[in-house]
Design a protein around this nucleic acid. Sequence first.
RNA 1: GGCGCGUUGGUCAAUCGGCUAAGACGCCUCCCUUUCACGGAGGAAUGACGGGUUCGACUCCCGUACGUGCUACCA
Length: 505
Amino acid sequence: MKVRVRFAPSPTGGLHLGGVRTVLYNYLFARAHGGDFVLRIEDTDQTRYVAGAEQYIMDCLRWCGLNPDESPEKGGPYAPYRQSERKQLYREYAEKLLASGHAYIAFDTAEEIEKMRKDHRIDEHSHAQYDSRTRGLMVNSLTLTPEEVNTRIAGGTPYVVRIKMPEHQTITLHDMIRGEVTFDSSQSDDKVLLKADGMPTYHLAVVVDDYLMKITHAFRGEEWLPSAPVHVLLWEYLGWKAHMPQWAHLPLILKPDGNGKLSKRDGDRLGFPVFAMNWLDPKTGEITKGFKEMGFLPEAFINMLAMLGWNSGSEQEVFSLDELVQKFSIERVHKGGAKFDFEKAKWFNQQYIHKTSNELLADRVKPYLDAELGIGNWELGLLSKIIPLIKDRCTLLPDFWAQGHFFFSTPEIKEEETMRKGWNDQKQQFFTEWVAALGSLSSWTHDALENSFNELLPVHNLKKGDVLLPLRIMLVGGKYGPGVFAIAEVIGMEETVKRVNWVLG
RNA sequence: GGCGCGUUGGUCAAUCGGCUAAGACGCCUCCCUUUCACGGAGGAAUGACGGGUUCGACUCCCGUACGUGCUACCA
């Protein structure tokens, strides 16, 4: 049987890094087994629908290089891939469940349910559930006669279809990461399967679609584990038990400090991205920063996520996507949640910047220079010269500007005090003569520049250390950057002379 | 509160009964470098707790604690 997996997000906002990791694990599993990876949009909650979110999710997957084989955009043999477009389909299965007695119709209003929750609460901390203990008290097809039910439906009374959870039945589920997990069916309430608006809830929709789309392995976040028994029962009641996918509930990604699931707010608070790409909330106009825009390379982002909860068992940490496809195994996914560490994420990016070819890096860096200098306002050829000089000093893509801006324009001197420290006539003389000598250099190379510099030193009774740092500050503005003479070589004679002369006054 | 899941250094984590408990990030020291980095060499830092089982438990079992998730006509 062909392996088929799916990523099923609901289009309600930015794509969380945990979501991307779920996509990754799905993708790796599918590729490793020669299977299909499908993207299914779970947009059954019309009240939470956010315009643009679906397109945004696909853009994120594209940036990550984790493209689905089947999706709303691409189509496929099991289309449509948007649950809202499959709406009519689910009712048929709800009816089937109704007919077999595994589900029932309920007419209760939100207020009535709320009242029941309070009136029948067991203690102060918990509200009663709509379940085997309380369903007999409510207005539903279990307490009403068939005639009464029909009259209400005919009269247009809104209703939902709920699953009738059995009492005290032990439900066992095999999870690829956790092994056997068991539940007591009485713990779960009679979940709504079909809502009053005719849309299915997640519970009905996942089961129906996973079956119809022939999904063989279902990976999702650990937060779904408590409702898994409901899904297992549904597979059974619908008569599809033999086709139920193998489950894997992925550990959660936690906040770096305190406790709890990592959320967008933590990123804002702690100063790091949580979403894959910038997300503009159409309702509030608020922009949430993404890893892409913060200057991460997609390869590094993916590698970092792969290692958050999984490891190969070896000491290797840097893996290409192809290597991950080869080595990843869902069984080696850690069971416990992992706290997100932004420092480690940056380290991965640094590793990738170091190992990425200068040509490819130039493509990635170009947009940042365009943004700083304006498109067409700078010499593209410079990029290939400076990248090898500064890449070792860069962790995120914007660092290329921070580390290389002085190649493009005369820098502001930010370390003037350091530069002037111990300044005297000797130094003034030295630089004046060196600058004058520059014109007669046989070739403008860093070696030639350094030689002429060195030769002049004893003439003025100076040591190299006395004047090298001042020269650096003249050229770059601060105490950083690649070798000074290499910088001078790149910016050229005219600019070098100009920067030194400006300081000499 | 109930139920599920989890628990090895600050963080990510290896270990599938033999441990003097890997490795990485971060931190500290030193070397390299007359800048900043890269790189190299070191260092500090770990099995939640209590019972079993066993010749031997980080590894298996039970309990406790702690963490986390769920407990919606949200996913």
